[in-house]
Amino acid sequence: MLKMYRVDALKVKSGPTESGVEVPPVGGEMLPIDKLGVFSSSYGVLILILLILPIAFVLYKKRGLALKLFTPLISRFL
């Protein structure tokens, strides 16, 4: 037996106008800031940014300690 598909041709949208309630999220390619599209296509980038932001925040708040820790490491490569 063939697989049963939920085809669009027999779905009628429920709105009183041509459009319906089940509206797909608007945005992505339509937003002027095209770069935002990268988040929907690559969750990796989003996760990376979400991780980097708190780390950056902590490093900034404790910058004295951070400088103390990282200066010897950085100066080793200079």
């Binding site: 598909y5 939920r6 085809v7 669009d8 041709a9 709105g15 106008t17 041509e18 459009s19 319906g20 309630v21 509206v23 797909p24 608007v26 339509m30």
Partner: peptide, 16 residues
């Protein structure tokens, strides 16, 4: 109110 934007600037091809 339902502000419907799904036909604004968009082509909505059938899944088929």
């Amino acid at each position: 109110i339902d502000v419907a934007l799904d036909v604004f600037l968009r082509c909505q091809p059938l899944q088929e």
